[in-house]
Design a protein around this nucleic acid. Structure first.
Length: 644
RNA sequence: GCCGAUGUAGCUCAGUGGUAGAGCAGCUGUUUCGUAAACAGCAGGUCACCGGUUCGAAUCCGGUCAUCGGCUCCA
């Protein structure tokens, strides 16, 4: 691909490796990797995609920024143990085991030292060890920079993890000062890096966090320092600005501003209270889903919020999730009850309440079931991760020969739902069993069959997915829809799970054509995932400006003066009763300007302004959320406008 | 649960050892208005909570709780 760029809008970012620069097209906001310069104005380029971020200059720059930070940390905190420091989606981090606590107030100091080190124009040189022994010696003698072998603790562990036959490389940041003394900072690293520290100019250290060595909670917790780096000051500035803007879209802020939901410490962590407008939103979404499900042959059921614990002992949930359940309701003399953490066992009970024939299947039980899970304190995040939430749950009991079609039907429903909600930016994740873990129940044969069913269904319906080992439910593999929030964090939304194991545990049966008992397969599914998480995410996606069909208030009627209130009230009531719109009458004695401002900030799709002229002519003054004042029009014209 | 940060009026925030502040919101009055904030007045806080240091603490120290950013986890 050859593309011509206006002079000055592109640039090779490193003279020493001209083949891998980056170009930016300002008109189309697309970044390109430039492959080759054909003449002064023309580069051969390829569009930069997510998968090639790893090959980009930016990726190397951030990786080098992590090393630069490690160098500063090594100087400022003698005895610090370096672990790993990779580039990540929006920057980089380095995990360290520091001799003293590093606080956020220390970041400016570290940043300042990085700036100095950057300016020293240290050459970054790749060194490949001849063999493992030499690598080991280098780690112990050179990367420790005379601080003693103990600072190499994590690097030695990393060396063991380098696959046999792969080069073991080091990157050395070296310079010679005016007195002629040679300085170096050498770190075990696969690379690649930029050529000199001077290239690392536009960076910022963002935050400090704890992170377990190798991501395992049983290991020591290290200190992780996050930073970001860009190729230009403008890009860094834009990134930081966008981050601030994204925070304004945070569902927790909009939830309060728009009157959707609230939390109260007197109620409890992670237990949302739904306010009138939020409750309206829930109703609209629930109604939509119920209608879709009725079209597709689901049967509604309703089950209690608590149950005898024995039910969950049988399902296997108590053993796996005891610590994540709300405290049990115990009475030594009587039964023990628990708040339900999920709905499956109830639907299984309903299935088992009578003999099922092969002719009855598939059976699809749907319920908006509110469940309670005692998430760890640090895990609760507004309504995206609450301790009480409502799943748009259903369980399908199907014959093995129906599994594929039923699974496809569910994926089709999910696609319908996503498209109706206007969510286009999602990924599908196939969570499979991690062979190394012992948390999974059931025979391998079942797991293989279930996983194959999902893959087959996805292929048939053209759903692209990526495989994530270890992300299965404990009873079966699953296909999850992953969507990002305003801050770019991934959230699991809708889910479909194929389950051979609970039917076995509960000894579910149906009588086949051959008059013999057979075992059904279960599909667990929730297209939204939960109402709470989906509403939180939609709030961020739309920045609170919900599409007309979802908006809790669709139309605000604004009388200009007291004498218009009666007419406006009648109009509002007619819109409610005759046209089934959700209408708010703003009859406060405020100026029109103020009412317009406030209803606009409430992101109401349409305002109808009523004054003398409108009453006289039978018109309404229409103001749209997106396009502002549309002027006066006959009511009928407004109605046909919003109907279309 | 762990690491780091934050907690002052309903909201957004100022106040670094000496009598708690502003804007918006609220209330009262005036204004009756044509497309993003009328005007005036009033009221509102155990400075998250508990303990300590001090003649004196919103401010310094310790603990607890909640929230935020991560880590781990997510049936």
């Amino acid at each position: 691909m050859v593309r011509r760029f206006p002079f000055g809008t592109d640039r090779p970012h490193t003279e020493r490796s001209p083949g891998i620069g980056l170009a930016f097209c300002p008109e189309c906001s697309i970044k390109y990797n430039h492959l080759r310069q054909l003449d002064p104005l023309v580069w051969e380029v390829s569009p930069m995609t997510v998968s090639s971020y790893e090959d980009s200059y930016l990726y190397r720059l951030r990786h080098s920024a992590a090393h630069l930070m490690a160098q500063a940390l090594t100087e400022l905190y003698p005895g610090i143990k370096l672990a790993i420091g990779p580039p990540i989606e929006n920057g980089f981090y380095y995990d360290v085991d520091a001799p003293t606590t590093i606080r956020e107030e220390d970041l400016p100091k570290i940043e300042a030292r990085m700036k100095e080190l950057s300016k020293l124009d240290q050459r970054i040189v790749r060194i490949v060890a001849a063999d493992r022994n030499e690598a080991r010696t280098k780690i112990l003698e050179e990367t420790t920079l005379g601080q003693g072998p103990e600072v190499a603790e994590y690097k030695l562990l990393l060396l063991e993890a380098v696959p046999e036959g792969e080069d073991v490389s080091f990157y050395d940041q070296q310079r010679t000062d005016r007195a002629g003394t040679h300085h170096r900072f050498i770190d075990l690293c696969r690379g690649p890096h930029v050529d000199t520290t001077k290239e690392i100019k536009h960076f910022k250290l963002m935050s400090i966090a704890g992170a377990y060595w190798r991501g395992d909670v049983k290991n020591k917790q290290l200190t992780r320092i996050y930073g970001t780096a860009f190729e230009s000051a403008e890009e860094l500035e834009t990134y930081l600005h966008n981050l601030e803007e994204a925070k304004k879209r945070d569902h927790r802020i909009l939830g309060r501003e728009l009157g959707l939901f609230m939390f109260s410490p007197r109620v409890g962590t992670g237990l949302p209270l739904w306010l009138p407008k939020g409750a309206m939103l829930r109703d609209t979404m629930t109604t939509f889903m119920k209608e879709e499900q009725l079209k597709r042959g689901y049967d509604p059921v309703v089950t209690p919020h608590i149950a005898n614990i024995k039910l969950y002992e049988k399902s296997g949930h108590v053993i796996t999730f005891r610590e994540k359940m709300f405290p049990f309701m115990e009475d030594d003399e009587k039964e023990t009850f628990i708040l339900k953490p999920m709905n499956c066992p109830f639907h299984i009970e309903i299935y088992q309440s009578q003999m099922r024939s092969y002719r009855d299947l598939p059976i699809r039980y749907a319920e908006f079931g509110t469940v309670y899970r005692y998430e760890q304190s640090g895990e609760v995040t507004g309504i995206l991760r609450a301790r009480g939430f409502t799943q748009d749950d259903a369980h399908l009991f199907v014959r093995p020969d129906q599994l594929l079609d039923e699974f496809i039907g569910v994926v089709d429903l999910m696609k319908t739902v996503l498209s109706r909600l206007g969510l286009t930016d999602f990924r599908a994740r196939l969570g499979t069993k991690d062979p190394a873990s012992s948390k999974y129940i059931g025979h391998d044969d079942n797991w293989t069959a279930a996983t194959a069913a999902i893959e087959q269904a996805c292929q048939k319906i053209g759903m692209e997915y990526f495989i994530s080992p270890g992300d299965a439910a404990f009873y079966g593999p699953k296909l999850d829809l992953i969507i990002k929030d305003a801050l770019g964090r991934d959230w699991q939304m809708g889910t479909v799970q194929v389950d051979y194991n609970l039917p076995e545990r509960f000894e579910l049966e149906y009588i086949g054509e051959d008059s013999k008992p057979h075992r059904p397969v279960m599909i667990h599914r929730a297209p939204f995932g939960s109402l709470e998480r989906m509403i939180g995410l939609l709030t961020e996606q739309y920045a609170g400006a919900f599409p007309f069909w979802l908006a809790p208030v669709q139309i605000a009627v604004l009388p200009i003066a007291d004498r218009h209130v009666e007419y406006a009230a009648a109009l509002a009531q007619s819109l409610r009763l005759d046209h089934k719109y959700r209408v708010h009458l703003d009859d406060r004695r405020e100026t029109l300007g103020k009412k317009i401002r406030e209803n606009q900030l409430q992101k109401i799709p349409y305002m109808l302004i009523i004054g003398d002229r409108d009453i006289e002519n039978g018109t309404v003054g229409v103001r749209s959320r997106e396009d502002g004042d549309l002027g006066a029009m006959p009511l009928q014209d407004f109605l046909s406008k919003i109907d279309g």
